[in-house]
Nucleic acid binder design. Structure first.
Lengths: 343, 343
DNA sequence: CAGATCCCTGTTATCGCTAACAAGTATCGA
DNA sequence: TCGATACTTGTTAGCGATAACAGGGATCTG
């Protein structure tokens, strides 16, 4: 019972053999045309292409993946968060990958713990993804990744540089250093810091950059205000800082913290930047419209995404055997939340 | 040349036949165990599971997809944006799908035009995705979707209710109505509106809800301030509104517009909420820390994601033949940006 | 002009799985 | 006790592509 009868119509989606039959060639020749193999006569190529067009032929990725053992899929493991940085990164990566002809399969995990990450990697490998990208900004996530051999090319974003695995990061320390130095250069005696969650590398790097800038300037290192990434935590920290007259400059670990700090300062009548200067990190699109417009540090997420894809593709093509790490230095964006301290 | 020799080791990843050999059954029985088929003896099931464990067997999704014609993949078409609403929605959907055992393949398009969307759908179908979710909040996106028969279950989010296709939306009109009514109830003679981009359904619905509330109250309908979704556009609109003494209440189409408006008002010395009341839409996490904390409308993105997945799974199981539409009503979150008008 | 070489194309085997059918054993009611 | 009806398992045949090899015709070389 051939359901591809002389009528020319087939019940199922057209496959390679259907195209081959219509074009009067073998399915192998169709395959060659599809994959751009050089040794096909021009005339044949045209005939095959016409047949594909006519039947609305669409290659079956599953069949191809089965025989080659590799799909045109890149797996991503990410945390379930709407934090600006990770979200932007992911969006940028998806766009870059789509442009390169890869689909991106995203697995969100609730927590970046060992078992969640392992499960996510497992499922990616079941799908026979060509490579995996892990957005792993915490220590626990990195420990988990270290114990798991992916079996496929793996690139980590925002991970642990010590691990020696392929990695793309934003240079948090350089950004924090620039932010702090900018405040010191404006004439402040020292700079206070409201930090992100302790187990994030990003937060840690920003603390280090802040401290290094203070050390180099010989400035006193004030106590660290530990927070998380939320505006709420920034507000709480800001309520403390606002009460201390000696606080004239604050570097917040991200823009949302800075927003909370701005409100706390405003509520206590401390003017920004006249009484207190504030610098953030991330340059969220709306930072320019905070009150006042926020001076901040801008990482280039598009560049991070592009580098990540590049590293992954290099591993796929086997060009790159040794692990490679790339670090991107963010830039300072000056707005109106910084001024010299008042006399 | 069998490379799975008596040594028990295989060069390639273990396949079903390897498990079968070790467990002393046929590969079909392994398949049955894997798929939870009922008619397998308990003892056999255990033996097979043990063999799977021992070999570290992992099913090959490509092979399964090839034979069944369907993968455990859900394709998503989304625009390349970091707007809070779509991003949150996507993250929530990814989490829900992961929990249900589906991978989510995301294709980002730069623009929601016909050819981009068609290309994205095309690639999803090549992957033999089980179903597709389109985040299609603009008219052009919906036109494109209407002309394309997906050939697989398709659920649209934020799309055109007129199309009659399966759809999940937030009730923009109800949200906007509630926001506007809240301001009128506070005693304002009328409410001005800064709207989102004209070709978005979300923006359109919010305009309609705003107008309906005004009409019902018999209030004058002031000219519409058309903007996009950005804080920058809000700021520009705010600069106009701040100059007009008769403006005492503004409903912004989203929180970031509201942020820009707040800054513009602040710059011209018009106090919120004393001189002007403002309501936003979205309830971004940091809205509580705007100056002042923003009264806004909160859509439940988790619920939207859950409904979407539910609709898709229902279509997959064939339970749901007729197109179904679900609408979720957002809630008002009262903060401090609304007060009665000054005497 | 014979033999080697290059192009182009076709044939066959295979990837790892599920579907469909077949067949053997156990359980049951008459 | 015997046929009917489970339940459990195995055998065979694809799914739609690529890989490897084979072979025929044209072109090149000496």
């Amino acid at each position: 019972m051939d359901n591809a009868t002389a009528s020319g119509r087939v019940a199922r989606d057209p496959a390679m053999v259907d195209v081959a039959r219509l074009a009067g060639v073998s399915h192998q020749t169709v395959s060659r045309v599809l994959n751009g193999h050089p040794n096909v006569r021009e005339q044949t190529r045209l005939r095959v292409r016409a047949a594909m067009e006519e039947l609305g032929y669409r290659p079956n990725a599953a069949a191809r993946a089965l025989v080659t053992g590799r799909s045109q899929l890149i797996g991503v493991v990410a945390q379930n968060s709407t934090l600006y940085g990770p979200s932007s990164l992911l969006a940028a990566f998806e766009l870059a990958a789509s442009a390169a002809g890869f689909a991106v399969s995203v697995r969100r995990v609730r927590e970046l713990d060992r078992s969640s990450i392992e499960a996510a990697l497992e499922q990616h490998r079941n799908q026979r993804v060509a490579g995996i990208v892990a957005i792993a900004p915490t220590a626990s996530a990195n420990e988990a990744l270290a114990t798991v051999s992916a079996g496929v090319p793996l690139v980590t974003i925002d991970g642990d540089p010590e691990r020696g695995a392929p990695l793309v990061t934003v240079d948090q320390e350089a950004g924090a250093y620039a932010a702090t130095k900018h405040l010191l250069d404006a004439g402040h005696a020292t700079v206070w810091h409201v930090s992100g969650p302790a187990d994030w590398f990003d937060a840690d790097g920003r603390v280090r950059g802040w401290r290094r800038a203070l050390d180099e300037a010989g400035a006193e290192v004030p106590p660290l205000a530990a927070a998380d990434w939320s505006a709420a935590a920034g507000y709480r920290a800001g309520q403390m800082l606002a009460r201390m007259p000696e606080v004239t400059a604050v570097f917040a670990a991200n823009d949302h913290l800075a927003l909370g700090i701005l409100r706390a300062l405003s509520e206590r009548g401390r003017s920004v930047p006249d009484d207190v200067s504030v610098v953030g990190f991330d340059d969220v699109p709306e930072a320019e419209f905070f009150i006042p417009p926020l001076t901040t540090i801008r990482p280039d997420f598009d560049a991070v995404a592009a580098e990540t894809l590049g590293l992954l593709l290099a591993q796929l093509s086997g060009t790159q055997a040794a692990p490679v790490q790339r670090t991107l230095v963010p830039e300072l964006v000056e707005r109106r939340s910084v001024a010299p301290p008042q006399r």
